[in-house]
Design a protein around this nucleic acid. Structure first.
Lengths: 333, 333
DNA sequence: CCTTCGCGTCGAAGCGCTTCGATGACCTGC
DNA sequence: GCAGGTCATCGAAGCGCTTCGACGCGAAGG
């Protein structure tokens, strides 16, 4: 069974090849009757345009690259949600998604862009001093970044407003009347890498706490149970009056609750806990965690939309910050 | 800056276009001097072959589709490890990876295959009665499945040998002298979907336990802390003599330890726990979990290799089962 | 010495599609 | 009744690459 080409469709419908093309692309007016005849032939023959030929002739591959980080300290569920949302949204724009890992580096990006394999790029987990950023600036293919490099000038960046997220947590605890609070963040390595979002959360938290006149403290946090336990214990020893805890570390969130339980602190009676994490993690914990959600889906959708707009040649804002949303559950009062 | 084509390279090197092509593909003998001249020109001009043109002319896109499930009960870290390994391995074979979600269904597979966007397909999390399997049989593009449908005849399937994994856990506990053991599995919904691997683990576990003459019990397990706690408590109440527990549920593994702690059972003094999960989860727990690792990386690598072999027209085994490996840590004795 | 062979190279024919300019057919308005 | 304009359609020229057959040339064989 030879594969069906546009010529087969044209013959079957009794029209020119170009007519079929115009019916399918809608780039020229075609009479209703002809259109219908062509469409019927397409269906009958089971025609699917050849992607390579289309890309070659139109200079549009209808594929975007999605570059995911795959390193320590990453938040998998968020990453998957994000990827899913990117794929789904891209499909709505009739595009497919080429998956790349960050360790292909700038060369990899250059390769897929220069070979016209993809029309645009979506990079996740951009660092403050990201070596790929200079390349992106140079590339003729449009790109959208998730996260912010040091200088977002001339780029298009999307992210959750982590500063607001940190602030929101502090606000919530302040509203509940807590006077001494602390934040447990990502593993140290994440800060050292300069990933930005972790620092911005801390900064937002600290600043909001200061605004409310609270005693606040923010520190990195590793992810093993024993290290979490030690960190929580240390914190509690150092700050006996502590009654509010923010956890910005999805892997550690469950362990924090376990540690508090062991240390004889009831949640929320003795300590209120707020997490910055996906909803499913928060709901699965006991007690269910009050949390600020990382809207991975929104970020993905928004990023694809921006990229599509750029592909159409539209101007888009350099920076898009998504509002965090606090969901109150059982772990805070 | 116009994009560099093969014609530019040919002109720069003073040879015919076809010669450049042959240098790059190695499909015909080219003298060392000419080859070097061409290669130099390629480098100087920064030439990258146009993917669409190449695909059109050679009928090879050098892209494979990776279809990931994105549903409840899935094991994210394993999935990511798997995806990473697929991308990395594919790159070694000079292929890229198109990411698809399972909810595009059979139509989506048909679309990417028929449009020659991809040369082959990799499907993860195949179910016992998977609606996509009939299509795969029909498709001229080769495919490799992760997991086993009811009838793997004529397909190529790869997976961890979950029955052996279950058995390995039972063997280990039997060797340690435990007489009453139980397995806590995936959430009920996973069994209802007929995903296969969960059932096979249980079957392997039960059978091995029987072989050792042990009292054994295997049941599904939800993922929230409270449900895990309840399940563990119920199990302990029903089976006071229980001293060995296998957890085949990555999200629940940590919660099981927490529940045992609350219920006053020491691990491993009172109860030995063995998990079937990725190493990082096992290591992060307290006490570190003895575990059977899901070799996501191996599975991914192996799957890509098989697919590449099929693309070359080589015959490959219908079924490839990967040996599970038990790592003894602190949670069993 | 002439034929035969193989090696290295070239030219040209597509691969299946999009797009541009051209061509009728038909309508409009003066 | 005819210039001027639309509208729908067609034909052909590429897009950048691979691949097939052909060709020239020096080496080997008779």
């Amino acid at each position: 069974m030879r594969t069906v080409t546009i010529a087969d469709v044209a013959k079957h419908a009794g029209v020119a090849v170009s007519t079929v093309s115009y019916v399918l692309s809608g780039k020229r007016a075609i009479s209703a009757t002809t259109r219908q005849r062509v469409l019927d032939s397409v269906r009958v023959l089971g025609y699917h345009p050849n992607a390579g030929a289309r890309a070659l002739a139109s200079k549009r591959a209808k594929v975007i690259a999605l570059v995911l980080p795959l390193r320590a300290g990453m938040n998998l569920p968020v990453l998957m949600q994000f990827a899913t949302s990117v794929v789904t949204t891209a499909r709505q724009y009739d595009h497919d998604v080429l998956l790349m890992t960050a360790d292909e580096g700038a060369d990899g990006l250059h390769r897929v862009a220069a070979s016209a394999l993809v029309d645009g790029l979506l990079l996740m987990d951009v660092e403050i001093h990201d070596p790929r950023v200079p390349l992106l600036r140079k590339l003729s293919e449009p790109s959208v970044l998730i996260g912010f490099p040091a200088d977002p000038e001339g780029l298009t960046c999307v992210d959750l407003d982590f500063a607001r997220a940190g602030a929101l947590c502090a606000d919530h605890l302040a509203d509940l009347g807590h006077r001494e609070i602390a934040l447990l963040g990502a593993p140290r390595v994440v800060y050292e890498r300069g990933t930005g979002f972790a620092e911005r959360t801390m900064a937002g938290f600290v600043e909001a706490a200061a605004r409310h006149g609270l005693e606040a403290d923010a520190r990195p946090c590793e992810e093993s149970f024993d290290e979490v336990h030690a960190a929580v214990k240390l914190l509690l020893d150092e700050r006996p009056g502590l009654s509010g805890l923010v956890v910005h570390n999805e892997a550690a969130a469950g362990h924090v609750l376990g540690a508090l339980r062991i240390l004889g602190r009831r949640v929320p009676e003795d300590v209120s806990v707020v997490a910055i994490c996906p909803d499913d993690i928060a709901e699965r914990a006991s007690p269910a965690l009050t949390s600020v959600l990382i809207p991975a889906e929104d970020v993905g959708r928004q990023a694809v939309r921006l990229l599509m707009a750029k592909l159409e040649g539209q101007a888009v804002p350099e920076s898009t910050l998504l509002e965090p949303r606090l969901t109150i559950r059982e772990s805070s009062r």
